[in-house]
Simulated assay, not measured.
Amino acid sequence: MNLNCSLWQDNSMCVELFAFTKFCDVTEECFLLFTLILLMFLASLTGNALITLAIWTNPVLHTPMYFFLANLSLLEIGYTCSVIPKILLSLVSEARGISREGCATQMFFFSFLGISECCLLAAMAYDRYMAICSPLHYATRMSRGVCAQLAMVSWGVGCMVSLGQTNYIFSLDFCGPCEIDHFFCDLPPILALACGDTFHNEVAVFVVATLCISSPFLLIVASYGRILAAVLIMPSPEGCRKALSTCSSHLLVVTLFYGSGSVTYLRPKGSHSPGIDKLLAIFYTVVTSMLNPIIYSLRNKEVKAGLQRILGRKKF
């Protein structure tokens, strides 16, 4: 389908409707990609929904660590739902267009949930630090009220930063081309379509990405540095093993999430490649969301028991 930008511009010649680039030209390839993404999407939704349900319905799992895990699963559900349905629709139809308002909405929710997840992963690292390095004060310092405040701060920071960033970017004019060389309305490909000098906007994106990705990451590194120091002086090998096992799942999730996010948003503009960016986008939007429930349930007896309880009820 040829895209005619002139049909999608208002009287001021500003683009009011965008279109995502075509994923593939061969029908069989599109169907294969659609099937693969759909299966991963359904696996992500099912896994995260089951973990959330297992935690909220099992009193044994009403602890700070699982409270944050339930929040993480909810974030993952929203994160994938903000972009994947539109990707799937674009793969099997010519409905690749998206309005300026729709694009801004998609960008807001994607950034909001992504930034909130960065902050929440830092809160989870702090929780593990308190549990291992200060066990005698853990119950008071990580009370329900404190956990709720940390979760609200994570969601609140994501909302405010994303709102400001989205408003700043969509205050620009877009003169064309109208085709977004990406799967969804992400920050770098949208900025590439803006009119005039976007240097200040690019700096703002880099600064926000640095603060919202690097700052929580540094808090995670600091927390695990203290945890490692505490584990190394533990007299009991069993206690050391148990402490490390409670952190391994979180560390793996952090590595997957921050690794793909850092490569995408902290690279210099000149090193961006549309092909690589698209592969990374699929990875951090659906692959990591699908893997997180698996990672947290493989080596966690409490989560396994909660999932078996839920599945047993459904079977019954």
Results as ranks from 00 to 15, higher is better:
residue 144 R to A: 10
residue 19 A to F: 03
residue 120 L to N: 00
residue 233 I to S: 12
residue 221 V to P: 03
residue 276 I to N: 07
residue 155 W to R: 04
residue 305 A to R: 03
residue 100 R to P: 06
residue 312 G to P: 11
residue 254 V to G: 03
residue 113 L to P: 04
residue 129 Y to K: 15
residue 40 M to A: 01
residue 289 S to G: 15
residue 163 L to M: 09
residue 156 G to I: 02
residue 96 R to N: 13
residue 212 C to Y: 05
residue 232 L to T: 12
residue 281 A to N: 01
residue 189 P to Y: 08
residue 156 G to R: 02
residue 154 S to H: 02
residue 83 V to K: 07
residue 239 G to N: 10
residue 256 L to H: 10
residue 91 L to C: 14
residue 213 I to S: 01
residue 88 L to I: 00
residue 6 S to L: 13
residue 110 F to T: 09
residue 265 Y to D: 14
residue 233 I to C: 08
residue 102 G to S: 05
residue 137 H to K: 15
residue 114 G to D: 09
residue 149 Q to L: 15
residue 1 M to A: 13
residue 22 K to A: 14
residue 316 F to R: 01
residue 17 L to M: 12
residue 34 F to M: 09
residue 258 Y to Q: 13
residue 298 L to S: 10
residue 269 K to I: 11
residue 308 Q to M: 14
residue 92 V to K: 03
residue 23 F to K: 08
residue 259 G to D: 04
residue 269 K to C: 11
residue 258 Y to E: 08
residue 123 A to H: 05
residue 239 G to M: 01
residue 223 S to R: 07
residue 188 P to E: 09
residue 16 E to F: 00
residue 196 G to W: 03
residue 193 L to W: 04
residue 135 P to F: 08
residue 247 C to F: 07
residue 106 Q to L: 07
residue 90 S to A: 14
residue 73 S to V: 06
residue 126 Y to D: 01
residue 223 S to L: 04
residue 256 L to Q: 11
residue 249 S to D: 14
residue 238 E to K: 13
residue 199 F to M: 13
residue 123 A to G: 10
residue 121 L to R: 01
residue 47 G to L: 01
residue 216 P to F: 03
residue 261 G to Y: 03
residue 9 Q to P: 02
residue 203 V to G: 03
residue 247 C to N: 01
residue 182 H to P: 00
residue 65 M to T: 09
residue 267 R to S: 15
residue 33 L to T: 11
residue 5 C to I: 10
residue 30 C to W: 01
residue 268 P to T: 11
residue 116 S to T: 05
residue 134 S to I: 03
residue 41 F to G: 01
residue 165 Q to H: 13
residue 254 V to Y: 04
residue 157 V to K: 04
residue 211 L to C: 14
residue 215 S to M: 14
